[in-house]
Structures are given as C-alpha cells and as structure tokens.
Amino acid sequence: MKPAPFEYYAPKTTEEALQNLTDLGYSGKVLAGGQSLIPAMNFRMARPSALVDLNNVAELAYIKLTDDGGIAIGTMTRDNAVEHDPIVKQRMPIVAETMGYIAHPQIRARGTFGGAIAHADPAAQLPALSLALNAKLLVKRKGAERWVTAEEFIVGPFMTVLEPEDMLAEVVLPPLAPRTAGSYKQVSRQRGGYAQAATISVVSLDDRNHVKDVRCVLFSVGETPILSKYAAKVLVGNEPTEAAIADVAAYAAKNECDPGSDLHGTTEYRRQLVEVLVRRALTEAVLRAKK
C-alpha cells in the first residue's frame, strides 16, 4: 500500500499555489491535510500526477471574526484548531460539537476545515455543517475569486464546483440569529467512524418560542448533504410541538433522503435512523434555543 509517484510542489503563498494549479491544470491536485487523499493514494485509488501542498501556506490557516459577527475560517485551519477555538465555542457551539465527531483526535490534528468541504464526501460532517449554517465559500484561482454558497458548492458525491485550477480559500460562517441553537446527531457503527445516518439541525426561535428559521440537514443518506425543505415548511412560524417534529422526522426519513443499502445497513434501517435522529436533534435544538 504505497502511493504511486507524483510531482511535488510546495508553495509558500496563496499566489504561488494558484500559479502552480494554473500551470498544472488537470494534472495538479491540492494536498491539504492529506487525511482523505493520502489513504486513497496508498490504496492507489487516487493517483494524481502532481500535488500542490498547501501545508506551507501559513496565510491560509486562521479563524477570525467577520465584521458582521460571523466567523471566517481559512481553508488550511486544522480541524482541532476549530474544535478548540474559544470564539467558535462561544459563538457557534454547534460547530465545536460537530468537530468532535470527525474521526479521532490524531486525524483532526492534520485534517483541514476546507479540505473536508472540498472533498465533498457525502458521509462527512463539514459539508453538511456548512450547509446547515448557510456558509459562504471563497473560491480563488489565479487572478480571480468568487463566492459560492454551501448549497451551490457541492454538486454530487465527491464533486464540487471547483475546477482543477481552483482552490477553496476561505469558509465564512454567517452570524447566528439570536435564540438560535443547533444539535448534532449521528449513528455510526463505531465511535469516530463515518455515520450511517446523521443530521445537523439548527433552529431559531422568536420571542413566543415559535420557529423563525430552521435548517435541518440530513447527511450520509444520499449523494450530497440534504436540506430538509419540509422542516422549514412545517415548522417556520409555528410552535415546534412534539407532533410537528415527529411529522418532520417521519417525512424527511421517507421522502427527503435516499440512503442506499451497504455492508453495514439497509435502506430501511438507515431511514429509520433518519427519523429517530431528526426527531432527537430538532427536539434538542429547540430546547437549547429556548435557553
């Protein structure tokens, strides 16, 4: 299990990296934390002919507050930096909570926030989180940059809008409205393993404890993370009663996801999980938002 040979580039700045990517075109590939890419290369399932290693581009790793109170995260910020960041913990506890479910600490010490999103694994937490928090993603290429919403960014399993010469540079998590809280729920075969079904649900309440906004994202149960439209339809403007939540959970499980059968779970079982997890997550998010 040794990787095939490749050419190696180690730029020190974003500018250089973008130049490398442009020069290499289809034969180039970004190396971020390597925690998905290198295992795939060891199995020779991935065999890029050239790697542009971003690990020496110090300017791509940061966590900072935006002017409007959101959080901007440089693509090369390590997962564990986000997990333990005091600003993140305080302003967006759902982010810190989610980070803890990604693999094990040794992986989170290397894996990057942007890398996981760019990788677009349907079972991964961060693409789902960025969708749940309605993140904006900054995509750069030599001489150009553009903003893409999380919703637009992922187009299929392991597929994004990124072109070979593009780099995901920054992820901006917009500020949360007052009385907003999230809840993360998953079932995986083992702790630290990829989920068989999971949800990140974020709920905003008004003063009367009616739902002002809800973003209930299902993931690992379809080709991409899925934002439940039904949740918004049923809950927004209404009291999030047990019955309403149960209705959303049942509907989402039945109609809004598309889990396949695999070695570890049948479609039926994974739909059952979606129902249970959505119910538990929405209930918890509402409870937290009320606090």
Partner: peptide, 11 residues
C-alpha cells in the same frame, strides 16, 4: 450481527 441486521430481524 449489526444494528441494521437486528433491525431487520425485529421488523
């Protein structure tokens, strides 16, 4: 077994 297997048995 697996949880899914058990679920199938239960169903």
């Amino acid at each position: 077994l697996s949880p899914s297997k058990v679920y199938s048995y239960v169903m």
